[in-house]
Design a protein around this nucleic acid. Sequence first.
DNA 1: ATATAAGATTACGTTACGTCACTTTCAAGT
DNA 2: ACTTGAAAGTGACGTAACGTAATCTTATAT
Lengths: 247, 247
Amino acid sequence: MISIKELTKQTGVSVRTMRYYDEINLLPPAGKTEGGHRLYSEKEIKKLQEIQFLKSLGFRLIEIKEMLSDKNWDWEIGLKNQLNYILQEKQRIIQIEKTLKGLLNTLKIENSVDLTYINKLIQLYQSKNEQQNIFRDKYFHQGERKLLNKLPKMDSDDPHSLEWISYLVDLKKFKHKGANSPEIQQIIHCMYEKAIDTFGENDDFFNKLWEIRKSPEKSTKMGFYPIEQDILNLIEEAWDFYENKRH
Amino acid sequence: MISIKELTKQTGVSVRTMRYYDEINLLPPAGKTEGGHRLYSEKEIKKLQEIQFLKSLGFRLIEIKEMLSDKNWDWEIGLKNQLNYILQEKQRIIQIEKTLKGLLNTLKIENSVDLTYINKLIQLYQSKNEQQNIFRDKYFHQGERKLLNKLPKMDSDDPHSLEWISYLVDLKKFKHKGANSPEIQQIIHCMYEKAIDTFGENDDFFNKLWEIRKSPEKSTKMGFYPIEQDILNLIEEAWDFYENKRH
DNA sequence: ATATAAGATTACGTTACGTCACTTTCAAGT
DNA sequence: ACTTGAAAGTGACGTAACGTAATCTTATAT
């Protein structure tokens, strides 16, 4: 028989926890001294370890109490239920992770994020429903829809998206140098190569894409990555210079 | 200006929630009627959507309150912190998932799981520390240690493990037929083929493995999948028959 | 004017303890 | 036997984000 302090030293749980387990009748002490001090034996240590283990699996104390007291507890059902719950949680966590990474991506572009911008994003995330697909189907045909998936997605951290985003960041950085500056022209060049590489030389597709891009409302409805108007203008202007030089 | 009921209809949150948000001063109504009924405007709807969005990212209300009120809130730091937290949670969830799957695997073998068995498992899980590696390194050399990783692991659901486990289940099922019965001999045959396939013809390795297997304490220290003594005996006996027949 | 729906306030319940505040018991030294 | 300091006890409040219930008041439709 050991004291409560000894028990906590051996198991790492707190005194308060042991008293709580006693209170809810999950793990009462083996006995008490005349003065009322709790005394524990080996059996309680074992049970405490079982409790700790089950707790680490995410079970709640009330469930653990049932498991350990009910002699005919169906472990298979219990464990399967818990697994289902955990799998759901996992999905939720993964979704949050993707969204957070997406937000951090956009932060690279908008280096000052204010609430109006957050608001735009919220609308984007909340409009991720059938509506988007309706517009998507309206503007693009079968083959083009596959290409759309290669566009940078806000909630993605794949290299493609990151590359496009870095171009936008650079554009913003050198905006003040003008659309015909070597810096901007260099970026446009890279973007052009990347686009050809990814989508092929598909003028019709590009034109449609650009038409939508130039309309903020359509972009939003389509679930496109939000790009500010002045950057869009810059791209258009710089692209004119770039094409003239090539021909 | 709309009533609280109208707001909840439009946004899906509960009346209680709105009153609570008012109480903690996160989202007070735009105004009140003479009678004291809360009235909300478009601005509040927007803010409520922001709150819902941030809540879906796992932020707590007190944090959201700060984010939305502090004009100079550093979104990058905030989002990064949250991402770190989420990544930690993800690791925890994945660990739980693995353990639960492992437990469910063992359930297939021990179709009646009592507390003594859970206890064995707890010891196994809790001894997953340096101790294990010390013993591992003591008994096996470099090349053999690689082979060890191909043994069935309790917390894994890869096909290898599942196959070994199914053999053990079958052995248990046909135990009563005797070590020399065709059923048992068939299983031993499959196990033999699988072993050769996985580990090659490595007699020294097998002997060491078997030596440890026959000692429950060593098995435990090594973190091996716990197999009952009578099944071990059955395997040994059946193996003798099998070898005699082959030669 | 009245019935009824909608709204307000107040307060307790939830989880698994942490953290006081205050009192009592234990074990050891004198 | 007496003292004393450490350890232990009990009781209470706080936590997060509401759900739920009880009771009272206001708004609205007939």
